[in-house]
Design a protein around this nucleic acid. Structure first.
Length: 491
RNA sequence: CGAGGCGUGGCGCAGUCCGGUAGCGCAUCUGCUUUGGGAGCAGAGGGUCGUCGGUUCAAAUCCGGCCGCCUCGACCA
């Protein structure tokens, strides 16, 4: 074995980094905290993007593009927003470089200092709402349902490939509405889109909920989220949808004439998911051998590895491989034949396991003669000899089964790591011994929340949606609580 | 910003404690045998040891400064 992936048991964080690098998803770059997304990672992101983009379209959204640069003064216009993002902004101050007069290298030319600094967008609410002011006059101009695919920069102290990088790719939806009700409806609709995507495409079960005030997006009235559990029992926020109220409309003076002929501020939402989802995908499904991809998102769903020695074998084997590939492709399967003679079959088997290809077919002279093919599933050990007859239907069924199996397995893992606790000592003990999700009562105050976070490192991931109220007592203060909330240590 | 670690052929590392002029694996090249789970054997090429300075007959190794990156923590999607 050439490259060995650290086992999860030995060092989970290292395992994660090994997967990212050995599966050739991403690499470190010359810039601290920024990553190179390699073709494997990019193909995965493109598949996610395609699926999400279709869902956005189906719910009536259009894509647009706003500038990378935002005037510094824009950020200051919404008080909470600036508070949240000012500490992590990349700032552009000059437009030119010159040779350093006192040595080698370059310097920003002092004469090129910008009249107003520009910040590299950490998120686009401000520049979007500055534009919306010009787009919206009357209730007839609403709603505006816009999404953009973009990169953003947040100057993070500490980074981790895909989970937290200084620059990341994401989509951000920004919508404008006539009424509060409509905006809230949109916020929840998009949360549901994210949840559906996570569960049906990523095979990653999520909990839908609303954030507490302290975890809320800077400038939002309410932040809804989907929370997933990783294999190490830590929570990962996988997507957020914000009801922004009229905060940004007020900050950017965006009013419209309503149906009663009165001026009113526009109601807003924003929502986003990022390349962080790739990190979530890895930590939900993969194993000690490498990446495991759900078939619906896998760039390559089936790889065919031909096996031969002699020239005459090569001819018949490759012919059979190509024929199978054509049949699968006609059935809509993303399939490739790896006929490279620079690598041997065993090498390829390992390579595709590390890269997470859901199904591998191997075909040699023996199989050609018997009209069979050897099939191996990435999500299960072992392999099976199957007939070439009816192969496309069989593979289609296997891919669906893998997708379902991954979801079931992830859900089972999550349920096994989810506990109800009523007593604070038991709460701490549960977190230390098992991690995972803990349902517990909270009195609703930021003080209690902060104290629990400080003492246990656990945060309230969300107040769940759709769960029945269950009166109880806060585990710390004993004050009354309406329902249990979801606690976990998080990424 | 705090704590730790690392910087040595393209990649991954040993050598540093105890100073003596650089080694291993992978990759590359050549030849033969191989090809159904990361091929084997034989041979070959490739490094001013992050950087600047100091000690010494002699520094990858000891001392000091600087730079960079990674991991863990505080902050965060």
């Amino acid at each position: 074995m050439a490259d060995v992936i650290t086992s999860r048991e030995k060092d989970y964080a290292q395992w994660y980094l090994d997967i990212v690098q050995h599966a050739k998803l991403a690499d470190y770059s010359a810039v601290r905290g920024c990553m190179v997304i390699r073709p494997n990672g990019c193909a995965l992101w493109e598949n996610m993007r395609r699926a999400l983009d279709d869902m956005f379209r189906e719910t009536g959204h259009e894509n647009a593009y706003f500038p990378l640069f935002i005037p510094q003064s824009f950020l200051a216009q919404e008080a909470e927003h600036v508070e949240g993002f000012a500490k992590e902004c990349a700032v552009v101050t000059h437009s030119r470089l010159m040779e350093n007069p006192s040595g080698d290298g370059l310097l920003p030319d002092p004469d090129s200092k910008l009249e107003e600094n520009l910040i590299v967008r950490p998120t686009s609410e401000t520049i979007v709402w500055d534009a919306y002011r010009n787009w919206i006059q009357s209730w007839r101009d609403l709603p505006i349902l816009v999404n953009q695919w973009a990169n953003v920069v947040r100057w993070e102290m500490r980074t981790r490939l895909f989970l937290r990088t200084m620059e990341f790719l994401w989509q951000e939806g920004h919508t404008a509405h006539e009424t509060k009700e409509e905006a809230i409806e949109e916020t929840l609709r998009m949360l549901e889109v994210y949840a559906t995507f996570a569960e049906e495409w990523m095979a990653m079960p999520v909990i839908r909920g609303v954030k507490t005030a302290s975890e809320r997006f800077a400038g939002a009235v309410d932040t809804y989220c989907i929370e997933a559990m990783m294999q190490d029992g830590k929570a990962l926020q996988a997507g957020t949808s914000h009801f922004l109220g009229q905060n940004f409309a007020k900050a950017f003076d965006c009013q419209f004439q309503n149906r009663e002929n009165r001026l009113e501020y526009v109601w807003a939402t924003s929502w986003g998911v990022s390349t962080r989802l790739i990190g979530a995908l890895i930590m939900t499904h993969s194993d000690d051998r490498g990446l495991i991809l759900p078939p619906r998102l896998a760039p390559t769903q089936v790889v065919i590895v031909p096996i031969f020695r002699k020239d005459e074998e090569r001819t018949v084997v490759l012919e059979a491989a190509d024929r199978i590939q054509a049949a699968l492709r006609a059935a809509g399967v993303r399939v490739k034949v790896d006929a490279r003679e620079t690598h041997r079959p065993g090498w390829k088997f390992n390579e595709y396991e590390v890269q997470g290809v859901p199904v591998r077919l191997a075909i040699g002279p023996r199989d050609v003669k018997n009209h069979k093919v050897e099939m191996a599933r990435r999500d299960k050990p072992g392999k099976e000899i199957v007939s070439q007859e009816g192969l496309p239907a069989r593979i289609g069924a296997e891919l669906e089964d893998i997708q379902q199996h991954l979801f079931d397995r992830a859900l089972e893992m999550r349920e096994a790591s989810t506990r109800c606790v009523d007593d604070y000592e038991a709460f701490k003990d549960t977190l230390d011994r098992h991690g995972g999700f803990v349902w517990a009562h909270w009195d609703g105050t930021p003080e209690t929340e902060a104290r629990i976070k400080q003492e246990t490192k656990a945060t309230i991931r969300c107040i769940p949606m759709g769960a029945d109220k269950e009166p109880g007592k806060d585990m710390l203060t004993g004050n009354p609580s309406e329902r249990r909330v979801l606690f976990a240590r998080a990424y």
